[in-house]
Computed example of a mutant assay.
Amino acid sequence: MKKRHVNLWGILFLITVASCSKDDGNEIEEPTKSNLKQITAFIFKSDSNTALAIDISASINETDKVISVTMSYGTDITALTPEITVSDKAEVNNSSNDFSGTVKVTITAEDGSTVTYDIVVTVESNNTNNILSLTFSNADNPIDVTIVGQIDEENKTILRLKHHLILIFLHCCHKFKLQKVQVIAQKSAKTLMNQWYTS
C-alpha cells in the first residue's frame, strides 16, 4: 500500500512537469523595432558656430531627401557644426563639418535600416554696391596732404571735402585716377562750382 502511494505521487509530478513544458501559444514576443529614420530639424546654432551671429535653420525636402540652407555673404562654411534632430530611436552618422560641397548624412533606424540626406549649404553672393572709402592721395594727386572722405552710408554722402579741395578737383580732375566720381557738395560749394564753370 505504501509503495502504491509513492508511485502515485511520482506520476502526478511527471504530469505536472510535462504540462509546464508544452507550448501553450503564449510565448512573449520581442517588441518590433522602429524603422523611423527621418531628419525633423537641421539647425546651425550661433552658440556652436563662431562664424554665425544668429541661428540658421535649414529647409528640409523630405521627398527628395535634400536639406538646404543659405548663409550670408562672407560666412565661412568650412567648419560648421549642425544640430540635427531625428526620429525617436534613430541615430545620425555625420563625420563632416566642411559644407563647402554637398555633405551626405546617413540616418540609421532602430531596426538597422538607413536613409541618406544631401546637405546643401549656399553662400549668398555679394550684391552690395557701397563705397567703402574715398581717398585723395597726395602721392597721386597735386595736393599737399592726403584727403580721406567721411562716408555717410545712411544718407549716401561723402563729407569732409572742403570748398578749396573741390576747386582743386575741378582743375585737376584729368590727373586723378578716378572714374565715374559723383561729388556731393554743400550749397556754398555748388555755388563755387557754378562760378568756375561760368567764368
Rank of each mutant, 00 (worst) to 15 (best):
Gln38Val: 14
Trp196Arg: 08
Leu80Glu: 08
Gln182Val: 10
Arg160Val: 05
Ser34Glu: 06
Phe136Cys: 03
Ala139Thr: 11
Phe136Arg: 03
Val17Ala: 15
Cys172Asp: 14
Val103Pro: 12
Lys45Val: 05
Lys22Tyr: 03
Thr40Asn: 08
Val69Ala: 12
Ile119Trp: 15
Leu14Lys: 06
Val66Gln: 09
Ser21Tyr: 07
Leu36Val: 03
Val105Asp: 06
Phe169His: 03
Ile43His: 07
Glu124His: 03
Ala139Trp: 00
Ile119Val: 15
Glu29Ala: 09
Thr114Tyr: 06
Lys22Arg: 07
Ala18Gln: 02
Lys190Ile: 11
Ser46Asn: 13
Asn49Gln: 06
Val92Pro: 00
His5Asn: 11
Ser133Val: 13
Glu124Tyr: 00
Ile60Asn: 02
Glu29Asn: 12
Arg160Phe: 11
Asn26Met: 13
Asp23Gln: 08
Ile119Ser: 07
Ser125Val: 06
Ala185Phe: 09
Ala79Asn: 15
Glu124Leu: 13
Ile131Tyr: 07
Lys37Phe: 01
Leu170Ile: 07
Ser68Asn: 11
Leu165Gln: 08
Ala58Phe: 00
Ile119Thr: 04
His174Thr: 07
Leu12Ser: 11
Ser48Cys: 02
Gly74Phe: 11
Ile28Phe: 09
Phe13Glu: 01
Asn130Leu: 11
Lys162Asn: 08
Gln195Trp: 05
Ile11Glu: 13
Glu83Thr: 14
Asp47Met: 02
Asn130Lys: 11
Tyr197Thr: 01
Thr114Ile: 10
Lys37Pro: 05
Glu27Gly: 04
Thr32Leu: 13
Ile168Glu: 12
Leu52Ser: 06
Thr16Val: 15
Ile77Gln: 08
Arg160Ala: 12
Ile15Phe: 06
Leu12Pro: 00
Gln195Pro: 00
Val86Lys: 01
Cys20Asn: 08
His174Leu: 02
Ser59Asp: 12
Gln150Phe: 10
His5Arg: 14
Ile131Cys: 13
Thr191Cys: 01
Ser188Ile: 09
Ile43Cys: 04
Ile168Ala: 10
Leu80Ser: 06
Cys172Gln: 13
Phe176Cys: 05
Asp152Gly: 04
Val86His: 02
Asn138Glu: 09
Asp144Arg: 10
Asn94His: 05
Val183Pro: 00
Ala53Phe: 09
Thr75Ala: 10
Met71Gln: 05
Ala185His: 03
His163Ala: 12
Ser87Asp: 09
